[in-house]
Nucleic acid binder design. Structure first.
Length: 357
DNA sequence: CATCCGTGGAA
DNA sequence: TTTCCAAGGAT
């Protein structure tokens, strides 16, 4: 118990001197932070790097300064602003959560109340509780799993070790400054106790680290072997007219759910028909890697001469590639020169349209 | 408990 | 080029 107290004090002391300055974060010792900004940042940061989140967070808080503003937004605009960040169920849950919170009047102030909201699970509910409401909840993310695994030299591989990690992390969580402590643990994991080459020499808690003492810090946490990714293939059709492009909104469930996209086949051989009768030309291949499979996507293009049986035509000057998820953005940038050239037959061959991503 | 769900940067 | 993985949640 005394050791755990030493560790949390050393960590907070280190955080006071080395905390990262981040857009959604208040300075060490400042205590509570706007729950809306904490929630928004935590959802964006789920399985996503700080570097990737920063610009999205600034954009969202600029467009929607409060949870009530976000609750009033159109689904399609939120999806468009989320495009490129990945894991699109987060964006759908984000809007649903904002509307529930707005109807309630404010965020729930207990962990259980928060955990009942869409898109808020064990980690995020604990993080909001600690950071926004100064509640001494046990915050365990990937950083904390790594730090705890090393401090106690846990040999049990993840995810089997999770219950033990949660228990040990709870023993370390201090009653005072729980929000700063949670962020200190995560900063330590992100900057010192890193996955590959931990900087044990400058770690504020290296004295109490069993893995460092045993010389196995870089080997922990052990993890169960992961499965190989299957290779899949599909086709996407980018149809256009003189002044419009054919797009659709994908179904809410499943891969890229709810995002703006070009009509495509499934990714497992399902043979859907093209969205219109046209002279489709093979315009190249896009290779993309998802979490659990790799995809080779054949990109077909055509100038449409008959009404599409699927999707909707969007005026080219109202079409923004930034509203597309990464996969579709890749397909668009591949064919955009072709599309632009064929829209303007008088364009000189020497004029190369610029790509927009 | 295992699987599904994105993306891009680093080593 | 390949591998790993980053502040997880839903089912």
């Amino acid at each position: 118990m005394r050791d755990s107290r030493v560790i949390s004090v050393e960590l907070l002391d280190w955080y006071d001197r080395h905390a990262r300055i981040l857009p959604w974060r208040s300075l060490p010792g400042q205590g509570q932070t706007d729950p809306y900004r904490v929630w928004l940042s935590e959802v964006m940061l789920q399985q996503t790097t700080v570097a990737a989140v920063k610009s999205y967070f600034e954009r969202f808080t600029s467009l929607w300064p409060t949870v009530h503003d976000l609750a009033a937004a159109e689904d399609s605009q939120v999806m468009a602003e989320w495009a490129g960040l990945g894991y699109y169920a987060r964006a759908r849950n984000l809007v649903a959560c904002a509307r529930t919170v707005s109807a309630l009047g404010a965020f729930p102030t207990t962990r259980d109340g928060l955990a009942a909201l869409p898109g808020i699970g064990p980690y995020t509910s604990a993080a909001i509780s600690a950071i926004a409401f100064d509640l001494p909840e046990t915050v365990v993310d990937g950083n904390v799993e790594r730090v705890i695994s090393r401090l106690f030299a846990l040999e049990t591989p993840l995810p089997a070790s999770k219950p033990e990690i949660y228990e040990l992390a709870g023993l370390l969580t201090p009653a005072a400054r729980p929000g700063d402590y949670a962020q200190a643990m995560m900063d330590l994991g992100a900057t010192i106790c890193t996955p590959r080459n931990p900087a044990c020499g400058i770690c504020p808690v290296n004295n109490g680290c069993q893995a460092r003492i045993q010389g196995i810090a870089a080997e922990l946490p052990r993890k169960a072997p992961k499965k190989a990714k299957p290779q899949r293939a599909g086709t996407v059709w980018i149809g256009f007219t003189q002044d419009a492009v054919l797009v659709e909104t994908r179904p809410e469930k499943g891969l890229l759910g709810g995002t703006l996209a070009f009509p495509s086949t499934g990714w497992d051989g399902s043979a859907l028909e093209p969205p219109a009768m046209a002279d489709w030309q093979d315009s190249g291949l896009v290779r993309h890697v998802f979490t659990h499979f790799a995809l080779d996507l054949t990109v077909m293009t055509a100038k449409l001469t008959t009404p599409p049986v699927r999707g909707r035509l969007v005026a080219i000057d109202k079409f923004s590639p930034s509203a597309l998820p990464g996969l579709m953005r890749k397909a668009w940038s591949l064919v955009q020169p072709i599309q632009a050239r064929q829209r303007s037959p008088i364009a000189k061959a020497s004029q190369h349209p610029t790509r927009d991503d």
